[in-house]
Structures are given as structure tokens and as C-alpha cells.
């Protein structure tokens, strides 16, 4: 498959060509036979799935099922015990560090806690990747950072430090940083965690807008049913007991058609009226 070359500054200051994800190319994310393990303890095995262009892909499952760990494997923060993660036609798991680093420029990550650098203002947080990986002048970086903060509803908060804003605002600032380099793939780790229902809903709307306007492919780790049905169009369900994924597909389809009681129990909050959930979120 012909790849679209894109050049980007590497850690040694040179420009490196990396593969992007053309719409007519292979799926942007493919996970093949992934096994996650801590030493000899196998956390999850036989994880196989594909994320298509423009998907909002949900990794769901109960607490302790390994959702965030799977995300960390996909980002290369943990090496898999077995299996591979592919981005387009690029084997991320087997890649050299420099190639991986270049591929990471196509990603934006919003961590559960926001993970803002506490010693920097919001503008500096958003501006750091711009300063590191683009040739923009400091003034241009400030302008772009202000734009990104405005996109997430934080116009005027450029000079604030993370400790001076609320948890929901920290999440949005983290999102502004995640989209600083206009990534093609966005990863969200528990975006709704610790947020009130209204802030959570606003963040969901923001994720949908980013998908529609940036054309990004989005992977979300969450167990919030409201978010799952509101934004997800593809998903996998991780089961801690059987230590593997037990369902794959659109969450609404899983709710309507999946016969596995573990999936149904999860998607209906342990048996709450399934139709009510579908009616509210469908």
C-alpha cells in the first residue's frame, strides 16, 4: 500500500519520514494476538481487533480487567508478552525506537488524570510539543496554544497553572495538549473519570466534534455506560475472569444482540432495563 510521506522533526533535530494513514489504506490500528503479562502472570491473552478510519473505538470491561494496560501496550509504554500492534502498515511492536518515536507524533493521548506538567502554565503545556517538533516561532506557538485551548473551551486560561483549575478543566487542557500536533489517532484513558455528569457529557460532545472535524480515529478506555453509548461505534469487551476479550462490535449492537450474559450484565448495569438504556442513548 502506498504510504503518504510526512516529515517531522526527530529527537536529534533531523526530519524523518513517517507513514500516515490514508483513507484507502489499511486500518489505522490492528492488534494481533496480543498477550499482556506481568512476569509469568498472564493478564489478557488472544486480543485481536481492528480499528477503522474515523471510528470511536471503546475498550470496555469491568474494573481491573486490563483496559488501561491494553492502552499502555498500544502506546508502547509496556512491551507485550506476545503479539503485535500495527498502525496502518507499520509494525509498532517490532519497530526501532526512532521509528516508534516518529510514529508517536501521529498520536495524541489524554491520560486519566490529565497528566499536565504541573510546573508549566496551560499554554506552556500545549506549546511544549509544538516547540519540540515544529519550526514555529515562540509567538506562533503561543497563538496555536491559545487556539487549542479555545477549542476545548479554555480561552483566556493560557497563563493558569494546572493546580489553579478544576479537574474537568484539567481534562480539557490535557485534550488541548493531545491535539496540539493535529494527531491522526487520539487515545483517551477514562476521560469521564472524576467528572460530574454534565462535564462528562460536554467532554463526550467534544470527542465527537474532534472526530468529525479533525477526522481523527479515536480509542477510548472507559466503563461509563453513558459515554460508551453516546460516542462509541466500535468496541471490545475485556473479561477479567476468562482473561481475554469476549465481545467485539458496536456497543449498541452488543446491547441488542450479544447473548453473553457477562456483556449484557455490564451493558445493562447488572440487569437494569436494557431497552431504557438503548432508548436513552440510541
Amino acid at each position: 500500500m502506498a504510504a503518504t510521506p510526512a516529515s517531522i522533526k526527530s529527537s536529534d533535530g533531523k526530519r524523518v519520514s513517517v507513514t500516515k494513514f490514508p483513507k484507502d489504506g489499511p486500518p489505522p490500528i490492528t492488534v494481533k494476538n496480543l498477550t499482556m503479562a506481568y512476569g509469568t502472570f498472564v493478564l489478557m491473552k488472544d486480543i485481536n481487533f481492528t480499528v477503522n478510519h474515523g471510528d470511536i473505538f471503546i475498550i470496555m470491561g469491568g474494573s481491573g480487567s486490563g483496559k488501561s494496560t491494553l492502552l499502555r501496550h498500544m502506546l508502547g509504554l509496556i512491551e507485550p508478552a506476545n503479539g503485535e500492534v500495527w498502525y496502518g502498515d507499520f509494525n509498532f511492536t517490532r519497530a526501532e525506537p526512532l521509528q516508534r518515536e516518529a510514529m508517536l507524533r501521529h498520536f495524541g493521548v489524554l491520560y486519566q488524570s490529565g497528566a499536565l506538567w504541573s510546573s508549566m502554565t496551560l499554554a506552556e503545556n500545549v506549546g511544549l510539543p509544538l516547540g519540540e517538533f515544529t519550526d514555529l516561532s515562540p509567538l506562533e506557538i503561543r497563538e496555536v496554544a491559545a487556539l487549542k485551548l479555545a477549542l476545548v473551551g479554555l480561552k483566556g486560561f493560557e497563563g493558569y497553572y494546572p493546580s489553579q483549575i478544576s479537574g474537568g478543566m484539567q481534562k480539557r487542557a490535557g485534550l488541548a495538549r493531545a491535539i496540539a500536533l493535529d494527531p491522526e489517532i487520539l487515545f483517551f484513558d477514562e476521560p469521564s473519570a472524576g467528572l460530574d455528569p454534565i462535564s462528562s457529557r460536554l467532554l463526550d460532545d467534544l470527542i465527537l466534534e474532534l472526530r468529525d472535524n479533525l477526522g481523527a480515529t479515536i480509542v477510548v478506555v472507559t466503563h461509563e455506560l453513558a459515554s460508551i453509548f453516546a460516542i462509541g461505534n466500535n468496541s471490545i469487551f475485556l473479561d477479567a475472569e476468562s482473561r481475554t476479550m469476549i465481545a467485539h462490535g458496536d456497543p449498541k449492537d452488543l446491547l441488542a444482540h450479544c447473548t453473553d450474559h457477562r456483556v449484557q450484565t455490564f451493558l445493562t448495569r447488572g440487569g437494569e432495563d436494557a431497552e431504557k438504556s438503548a432508548r436513552n442513548h440510541g
Binding site: L75, L104, Y111, W117, S118, P129, E132
Partner: peptide
């Protein structure tokens, strides 16, 4: 603390060496 709050992960996934 930066590790607990995933700030180091954020640097790594941005392609910035935490060591440097």
C-alpha cells in the same frame, strides 16, 4: 509524583525523552 500522575507517560508518548 510525575509518574503517579502519568506526566512521565505523557512525555514518552509525545516522543520526548524523560531522561533528557
Amino acid at each position: 509524583s510525575m509518574k503517579v500522575t502519568q506526566e512521565i507517560d505523557a512525555l514518552t508518548t509525545m516522543g520526548i525523552s524523560p531522561l533528557e
